[in-house]
Amino acid sequence: MSTDRVWFITGTSTGFGRHLAELVLQKGEKVVATARRPSVLDDLVSKYPSDQLLVLKVDVNVSQDIVDAFAATKDKFGRIDVVVNNAAYAVMGELEAVSEEEARKLFDTNFWGAMCVSREAVKFFREVNAPGVGGRLLQISSITGLIGGAGMTYYAASKHALEGASECLAAELDPAWNIKITIVEPASFHTEGQAKTTWVPAHPAYSNPELPASRMRNGWGTYSPPGDVRKAVEVIYKVASLPEPPLHFLLGENAIMYARKKLADLAADTNKYESWSEGLKKNP
């Protein structure tokens, strides 16, 4: 793969987005780094030349911000090779505890914002890049996009939605466009996002401290995920360089463990009740 690629990365203020942007810049490639508060990237602006780094103010909840950012990238670099859909946040709590207003805001960022970026990315890869050059779209999801858990209802739902839409998009694309999609599903990596995660107060009916969500809520402040985010973005960078990348990419030992358990449970349930689906066709 070229070492002179242009990367468009959302949510670069902290976490995976920030560390990936730093890595790509260190490798000499170009980065369009977007954030709601561009000033948090001033240290990178002072370190890298303007012909390598473009910082743009983007709130993924504002569709015009996204459209303008892709237009600015076209004017600056003329192409995009990799788009990384990273902007997201987490609000945790039981289904009955999280307000509808808060849940809808979460979906606006984690799902609808990501969909708007995806739409513009596909259009750019097809219509601005040279014919057949295409591009890579990396959707930063989560293991919760595959596996739900107590206290994660709406966050997991937003990631499930992202994964479902991304699978459909991948199936819709004309192979001649050469657009590759990879859904990255990390688990248990220490980032600034953990400290920024909001836990809503528990619903009174879920006051039992032994419930799974209660245990998570009570232990959240002291839990330190074992994964090193710097090592993780090295792997993400490697995936973005594969000629034929996978649609799903589990990231981290815990992610693989959880996924294998779900696959085993799903296979067991399928096998146990397979006969119940026999004979359900309409009579001739």
Rank of each mutant, 00 (worst) to 15 (best):
A232D: 05
T12R: 01
V122L: 15
W7N: 01
R79F: 08
R217H: 15
S63A: 10
E192W: 01
A264M: 09
P243R: 02
A165K: 13
Y155R: 03
A72R: 11
T3Q: 13
T109C: 02
A90W: 01
L54S: 15
L56H: 02
A205P: 03
V58F: 08
A195N: 13
V122G: 07
S275G: 10
D65Y: 02
K74M: 03
W220D: 09
E274I: 06
F124V: 00
R119H: 13
G279P: 03
R5T: 05
G135M: 07
P226W: 08
V40W: 00
P226K: 15
L23S: 06
W177E: 12
A171S: 14
K281W: 03
W276G: 05
Y237N: 12
S2A: 14
N85R: 10
R230K: 14
S166Q: 01
N178C: 10
N178T: 00
G17W: 00
F70Y: 06
E22I: 10
K57D: 10
D59R: 08
L169V: 04
T10A: 11
G221L: 14
D81F: 00
D43I: 03
V24H: 04
A170E: 09
S142H: 09
D108G: 06
T222D: 12
S99Y: 04
V91A: 00
G279S: 08
K261G: 15
V32W: 06
K272L: 14
K238L: 06
N271R: 11
P225K: 11
Y237C: 09
A97H: 01
L242P: 02
R104T: 13
K272C: 05
N85Y: 00
L137H: 11
V98E: 03
T270W: 01
N86R: 14
L138H: 10
Y237H: 15
Y48K: 03
R230M: 08
Q194V: 14
E127A: 12
S141A: 14
P175W: 04
K282F: 11
C116D: 15
A150K: 03
L25K: 06
T3R: 10
T222G: 03
G221R: 11
Y273I: 03
V45R: 14
A232Q: 05
Q26H: 07
K261Y: 02
P186I: 00
K159W: 13
M92A: 13
L250H: 12
R36K: 13
A264H: 12
F107D: 11
I236Q: 05
D228H: 07
G15W: 07
V83L: 08
